[in-house]
Design a protein around this nucleic acid. Structure first.
Lengths: 247, 247
DNA sequence: TCGGCCACCATTGTATACGCTCTTTGTGCA
DNA sequence: TGCACAAAGAGCGTATACAATGGTGGCCGA
């Protein structure tokens, strides 16, 4: 209605550009990454509603494409699709949070052995570069960037092990972990300590999968332990949130 | 496939074919399950093309709904969506097959411990009933049904462990395994031996997670070993299939 | 004043129409 | 006879239009 023309061509705010009629779902993929990144970086917080019209307007496409992206995000559990209510950023439940970290503990630790065997010099350098960026982001108080980089780091680590199926699964778990951090994390205490990732790289570079696995276990457990996972009263949650938020 | 055309569009604008007012994706979910089941049962074989128009006609909905279902199936790796070529049942690659079984080995074995602790009397009876049905299907030479039941069995087993995230993952892996069986399996040698599942239930009923895990490991490895995993020439597969088809 | 009811509106669900790309087939030339 | 190019056809990608449903706000009655 209000979209006179597709003004998303040269928007200054958004960086993911959709060049009008992109062949295939190329343009849609950019939108997907854009929204996904926004969720992982906590620019879109759990519970935030995602109206199709608004997104269509922002990205300069019709609702059809937005629906496609939203469904993909819903299948990855990043957004929740309520039948006649629309889409919103998923607010992970306590059980969900526990399940995700349990799954990460199981899968990521077990993958360290293969990763230690298959890791190459290039991989090591790439991971070190990522860890460095993450440290810098932390130093600059850019927690959003740091969280995103941490998720990418874990996903990349999983890729090195050589199993694409498991790597994709870990990637999803890492993304969901970011949501869990947004809900149950304490401000000022980020999930991953940057030194942890550096240590992890060292163990892998030394080819010691067992130590890497042990360290990964402690790493993930420390993240989970830093969370405040408890059921909130849920009676009048919105009111409490409203008065407690604004941080 | 022989009994196609069950309800061929009673009316062009008919709205009663999806059991009345299907709000949300209720009707779509039925379509999803229908196609998914057909793939898992090998009624739709790997490589089979899934034209949107045809499916829309068969299920009495428009292409919009079919596209939604197809995308979900694509994200679960059951169908492959080629940009301008449409959808087809995924033909798992050799690497994919190895990855899937490696993932199953890792996850399913590790879940046995929790399953042994949490399993209830009702679960045991349900699993036994499923194993029984599977045996009967095998006895009746209904391999399609047996394969489907086997996949459901493994997925149900994963659910018992209490981790929904992992259970969902195992469910996907089991479905993909059915595809792998269709491509690399030897005729006459089904994936899961029915007695294996019975033994598994016994171990779990006895609360012995370690033995169950060991047995699951052997079980999965024997399935994988029974496959003929090697690259096929892939020159003119369709023609060969057509002439090799029963009728 | 509070609770229930009704109407309007906002938003999603579904269908249809149109354009584009890829495939296939037929024909001409080397 | 084999290959290359072109035209026709089929099928998918996207946008738009219509319909249905749930929420919101106001109104009326107790």
């Amino acid at each position: 209605m209000s979209d006179s023309r597709q003004t998303a061509k040269t928007t200054s705010s958004g960086r993911g550009q959709v060049s009008g009629s992109g062949p295939g779902d190329n343009g849609l993929d950019a939108i997907y990454r854009s929204i996904s990144e926004a969720i992982i970086e906590h620019r879109l917080k759990p519970g935030a509603r995602l109206r199709e019209d608004a997104l269509a307007d922002v990205f300069g496409v019709s609702r059809t494409g937005i629906r496609k992206v939203l469904q993909r995000l819903a299948l990855e559990q990043l957004v929740t699709l309520t039948p006649r209510r629309g889409a919103s950023v998923t607010r992970p439940s306590v059980d969900e949070a526990r399940d995700v970290f349990e799954a990460r503990l199981l899968v990521e630790c077990a993958m360290m052995d293969a990763a230690a065997k298959r890791i190459t010099e290039e991989d090591i350098q790439e991971l070190q570069e990522m860890a460095k960026q993450e440290r810098e982001a932390l130093r600059n108080r850019e927690q959003r960037i740091a969280i995103k980089l941490s998720a990418i780091f874990h996903a990349r680590l999983a890729e090195i092990s050589g199993n694409r199926t498991l790597a994709g699964f870990v990637g999803q778990l890492a993304s969901r972990s970011s949501l869990i951090l947004a809900v149950y994390g304490n401000a000022g205490h980020l999930g991953c300590e940057s030194h942890d990732h550096d240590n992890l790289i060292d163990f892998l570079a030394a080819g010691d999968g067992a130590k890497a696995s042990d360290f990964m276990e402690r790493h993930l457990k420390s993240i989970e332990a830093s969370l405040s996972i408890f059921e909130e009263p849920e009676e009048t949650p919105d009111l409490w949130d409203i008065f407690a938020v604004d941080a």
